[in-house]
Computed example of a mutant assay.
Amino acid sequence: MSEHEDVRGTVVLGGSTGFIGHDLARRWRAAGREVVTISRHDADLTWEDQAGIDAAVDGASLVVGLAGKSVNCRYTPPNRAEIFGSRERTTAALRTAVGRAATPPPLWVNSSTATIYRHAEDHPQTESAGELGTGFSVEVAKAWERELFAGDLPGTRRVALRTAIVLGDGGVLGTLRTLARFGLGGTQYDGRWPVGRARREAGTAHDFRTRGGRQRFSWVHLDDVAGIIAFLERHPELDGPVNAVAPGASDNRTLMATIRRALGIPFGLPQPRGMLELGALGIRTETELILKSRWVAPERLLSAGYAFAHPDLEEAVEASFGRR
């Protein structure tokens, strides 16, 4: 398949109602591709319909799995169980369908996360030399990838898309835009905070590491998520883990300043760890999502020749806000 040939054929999209899934389905349908969606609701199929999933996957040209309970929640025991279980169940359902297919799909791209790597402030983590981290979020990512690569599927190439924070009109950037408009768009500072034994044993504790709001921020734009998947369809040499991140990692201080500039807001109240912890408790989320230093590089995509549509953070933020 040539580099510029349009990719055709049916796509089976698991996890179609989320921020990324909704955008991908819209793009593929606008391009004339048939898209069969799977979700708990508002989709062509539900995850309980294994026979329907089997029929959809058989003969499809691409399977994409994005399903799983959002990690934007408090890591209570029930939520932790559902975060694990939702990823394992839905990935297993797709793997079962691929294994049963008379005409298996040539490519299965399944979501993973760049959070699988350790807290990194010294150098970027790549597929070849990156070091996996520890704790609850990392174990979720490992379990997700284990389910993807389990068993023998000789007719199907499998890719674990280790995706960073996705920028676009909504998602995490939508939340940060709202904070900035209320004057809370300052740097988000790590600091000391008491951590109970139960949270430490569960692996959900965030330890103070980074000073000055310099925790690294790896990201990717929605346009590039779609572009990367299309690139993977055209490049059969790529399989296994692939880091779906823009090449220019930033940091929290720069990110928040970039958001303020894009919105024309001159000032944002700095947010120390204590304020962040109380705020996270109030909106039922975890501070790890903004305080862990994620420094990840797209080694394999760049080596294969992928050209990012949005390699620059400032341009990507402005594009997400409709300013370009």
Score class of each variant (00 low, 15 high):
3 E>L: 15
4 H>K: 14
5 E>F: 00
6 D>L: 13
6 D>F: 00
8 R>G: 12
8 R>A: 15
11 V>I: 09
11 V>N: 00
14 G>S: 07
19 F>H: 03
19 F>G: 03
26 R>C: 09
27 R>N: 05
32 G>M: 09
34 E>C: 05
38 I>V: 15
40 R>M: 07
41 H>S: 15
42 D>F: 11
44 D>Q: 11
44 D>L: 08
45 L>T: 11
45 L>V: 11
48 E>F: 04
48 E>Q: 15
48 E>Y: 00
50 Q>H: 11
50 Q>A: 14
51 A>W: 10
51 A>T: 11
52 G>V: 07
53 I>V: 15
56 A>P: 09
58 D>M: 11
60 A>H: 05
63 V>M: 13
63 V>P: 07
67 A>M: 08
67 A>N: 01
73 C>W: 08
75 Y>D: 06
76 T>K: 07
77 P>Q: 10
77 P>I: 12
78 P>W: 12
81 A>V: 06
91 T>R: 09
92 A>H: 12
106 P>D: 14
110 N>H: 14
111 S>E: 07
114 A>E: 05
116 I>T: 02
118 R>D: 10
120 A>E: 10
123 H>W: 10
123 H>Y: 14
126 T>C: 12
129 A>N: 10
134 T>N: 05
137 S>W: 00
140 V>P: 01
140 V>C: 08
143 A>M: 06
146 R>I: 10
148 L>Q: 14
154 P>S: 15
158 R>Q: 15
160 A>G: 07
166 V>G: 05
169 D>P: 01
169 D>L: 10
169 D>R: 12
170 G>N: 09
172 V>Q: 08
173 L>T: 04
173 L>E: 00
178 T>R: 15
183 G>C: 03
184 L>H: 06
188 Q>F: 10
188 Q>N: 07
195 V>L: 14
198 A>F: 08
198 A>N: 11
205 A>S: 14
205 A>F: 05
208 F>I: 01
210 T>S: 12
212 G>L: 02
213 G>W: 00
214 R>S: 06
214 R>K: 12
218 S>E: 04
220 V>E: 07
222 L>K: 06
222 L>C: 01
224 D>Q: 08
226 A>F: 10
228 I>K: 03
234 R>P: 09
234 R>F: 11
238 L>R: 10
238 L>K: 04
241 P>R: 11
242 V>H: 11
243 N>Y: 09
245 V>F: 02
253 R>E: 03
255 L>P: 02
257 A>C: 02
265 I>Y: 09
266 P>A: 14
271 Q>N: 13
274 G>Q: 01
279 G>M: 09
287 T>Y: 08
291 L>Q: 03
292 K>M: 08
297 A>V: 05
298 P>A: 04
303 S>M: 10
304 A>P: 01
305 G>F: 11
306 Y>C: 04
306 Y>G: 05
307 A>P: 02
308 F>Y: 06
310 H>A: 07
312 D>K: 06
313 L>G: 03
316 A>H: 01
317 V>W: 02
321 F>T: 05
323 R>C: 01
324 R>G: 14
